[in-house]
Design a protein around this nucleic acid. Structure first.
Length: 597
RNA sequence: GGUCCAGUAGCUCAGUUGGAUUAGAGCAAUAGCCUUCUAAGCUAUAGGUCCCAGGUUCGAGCCCUGGCUGGAUCACCA
């Protein structure tokens, strides 16, 4: 039981004892005492004035006396205005520290039988071009949220839905046929997804040329866009693909395999993975039967031309198309089908889709339509909607070449990490492989932290110059804090110091030290909040604050040089615990830590 | 035009059931600290009408109303 809930309970008792009134525990507000005042925890007494019918100071005094008498860990208190500042005994904090040390996976809720089952879909790439910065945010968020939910005791299933069919895929296929001269990843040494992406761009270039030619020969621009031979041919290709034309399907398969092999490498570098991968080519027809049933039941309607619609006017939205005139599926139809299948097959309690905020409307509609169709789980569809990644020069646009390629970016981060490290010359004694491993960890730590520290729902600015900064509020700063601790512990070992598992409880510790313990004690709450809000940013901020506090402590308090053995050992135990929490928190972000840097 | 999201220091961001005269970090700027556990660190200075106007109350960056600005979206594309 945490000290906060003990105090809350006692405050309720106190109100009852002093004023004969009943209050709810939730109405008791406890917060950290502000730095400028003496004390550790503060009870806000304003809400109780109507029970006490006394001044804030008198009320605080009544409560303070009661708490001091009834809680051993409170040796004294003081009152500032309507704030009751409680001093918590060092012994108490030290026992909290030891308690945390004792607990495996401190702050994590273990997975038990019957745990809440959550599916999380993320990544969802198109197989016509390589992954870019936007995908990076998506992947990192998806992976991290999955980690956070696991830490909250959920059973988590990570899935990916690969968009491997459609006109955009045919475009790169066609361009490769026309201009590729048989190029393969092997023959060119180009990573498969980049090679295919090259032909996607090529298609667009040639397509534009055709439009231009048609326009100069007198055609209207809009018409030219529709009549350009390349586009017509791509559309024809899609028809052939859907009809199962052998040659087309073989080409499609070959090029998709190139792309998927490329993605595999990118995912591995990013450190993300999936429990199950779906392919749109398997699922795109799904949902049609469900829509037809909805039509029969009268919750959907059909237009004269044959298309099927949902009327969402009563929910303040428009009409939404679910099947085309020709009876084929649209994007929404597929999602209806896969959502049904997933809830049915996996008996999940919740489904989170990690998708950009440009699709807020889509997911709002998906949930409403599922509700109309009578699925009671329709409100368990959760859209983890994240903001766009913007560049200093504006939005990323694939066609204008302003995208930041995922592979390039990660490579550049590693290069910068290498340069910085070599400049500082800190890895002497490391082999080349060991050093490269550190560069990779630092680089990815920087990138992941940079992206995950921002509240997911907000648009974020990605300034490449800032992202490779390794000072201040960055991943490497946190990693560095960790390596400092490791260094101290190594030094202790060299000195032949046996670090005990627990700290002695009757120590006189400084405010800084007790504050660090309080921060550590708050970690479980942070995990809970991050899970509730599906926000890795909460973890990031917490770990950063903890690291910053620790660095101040590190600067001011000697450890290996401390002569008081008990105090020294306490600091080792504290440091070890801080390192453990940093490692744990960073693992929730998918960031791994080097032992030296 | 409808709907949703955002607006906090020059820049990037924190600020979670409304709480303390002084709204926090980092970057950038300036000035300091390495014969002492890793200076990718620490300390200090400077930098703010929390978009605007009303309202709610003991108290508002946070809640309510109205407006302004920016973004997203409203396809027989995915």
């Amino acid at each position: 039981m945490s000290i906060e809930s003990i105090i809350k309970g006692k405050v309720v008792e106190a109100i009852s004892a002093c004023y004969g009134q009943k209050v709810e525990e939730e109405s008791v507000q406890i917060q950290k005492t502000r730095r400028e005042f003496e004390g550790d925890l503060t009870v806000v007494v304003f809400p109780f004035l109507r029970f006490s019918k006394k001044s804030p100071e008198e009320t605080a005094n009544d409560l303070g006396n009661y708490l001091q008498e009834n809680i051993e860990a409170i040796p004294s208190f003081n009152i500032v205005k309507g704030f009751l500042n409680l001093v918590i005994d060092n012994t108490y904090w030290l026992s909290i520290l030891n308690e945390a040390v004792k607990t495996d996976n401190y702050g994590f809720i273990p997975l038990v039988e019957g745990a809440k089952k959550v599916m999380i879909e993320y990544s969802s790439p198109n197989t016509n071009k390589p992954l870019h910065l936007g995908h990076i945010r998506n992947n990192l968020l998806g992976y991290s949220v999955a980690q956070i939910l696991k830490a909250n005791g959920y059973e988590v299933i990570k899935v990916n839905l690969v968009n491997d069919r459609g006109i955009h895929i045919c475009k790169s296929m066609l361009a490769w046929l026309r201009f590729g001269e048989g190029e393969t990843p092997e023959s060119t040494g180009i990573k498969g997804d980049h090679l295919v992406g090259k032909y996607y761009v090529k298609f667009d270039q040639e397509y534009k040329k055709e439009i231009e030619t048609l326009v100069t020969s007198g055609m209207d621009t809009d018409e030219a866009k529709k009549k350009a031979p390349l586009l017509l041919e791509a559309q024809e290709m899609l028809v052939k693909w859907e009809a199962g034309d052998e040659e087309t399907v073989a080409l499609w398969r070959k090029m998709n395999d190139w792309v998927l092999a490329g993605f595999e490498i990118t995912y591995k570098t990013m450190g993300v993975d999936f429990d199950k991968v779906y392919f749109e080519s398997d699922t795109y027809k799904q949902g049609k039967a469900i829509v037809m049933r909805g039509l029969e039941e009268g919750v959907l309607y059909q237009k004269e031309t044959g298309s099927v619609w949902a009327n969402l006017e009563s929910d303040g939205l428009d009409h939404k198309l679910l099947l085309r005139d020709d009876g084929t599926s649209v994007y929404m139809t597929q999602d209806i089908g896969t959502a049904y299948e997933r809830f049915d097959e996996f008996k999940i309690d919740e489904h989170i889709y990690v998708v950009g905020n440009e699709q807020n409307y889509h997911f709002q509609v998906l949930s409403l339509v599922m509700g109309k169709l009578g699925y009671e789980w329709h409100d368990k569809i959760q859209h983890l909607s994240y903001g766009m990644v913007e560049l200093p020069e504006g939005k990323m646009k694939s066609r204008e070449g302003t995208v930041v390629d995922a592979d390039d970016l990660m490579k550049e981060m590693v290069n910068t990490a290498r340069e910085t490290s070599e400049e500082l010359g800190k890895l002497s004694g490391y082999s080349k492989e060991e050093a490269e491993d550190v560069y990779y960890k630092v680089a990815m730590g920087a990138l992941k932290y940079f992206i995950l520290k921002v509240d997911p729902k907000k648009n974020m600015m990605f300034n490449p110059k800032d992202s490779i900064d390794f000072n201040g509020n960055t991943g490497p700063f946190i990693q560095y804090t960790y390596t400092r601790i490791q260094s101290v512990l190594r030094k202790a070992k060299e000195n032949g110091v046996e670090i005990p598992e627990f700290a002695k409880k009757d120590l006189n510790i400084s405010e800084k030290e007790s504050f660090l313990i309080q921060m550590l004690a708050n970690y479980p709450n942070v995990i809970k909040d991050a899970g509730r809000d599906t926000s890795p940013a909460l973890i990031s901020n917490y770990v950063y604050d903890l690291s910053k506090e620790y660095n101040q402590f590190y600067h001011d308090f000697p450890m290996n040089k401390e002569e008081n053995e008990d105090l020294r050992n306490f600091r080792f135990v504290l440091s070890k615990q801080v390192a453990g929490i940093i490692k744990s928190g960073m693992s929730l972000l998918g960031v791994s830590l080097p032992e030296r840097m």
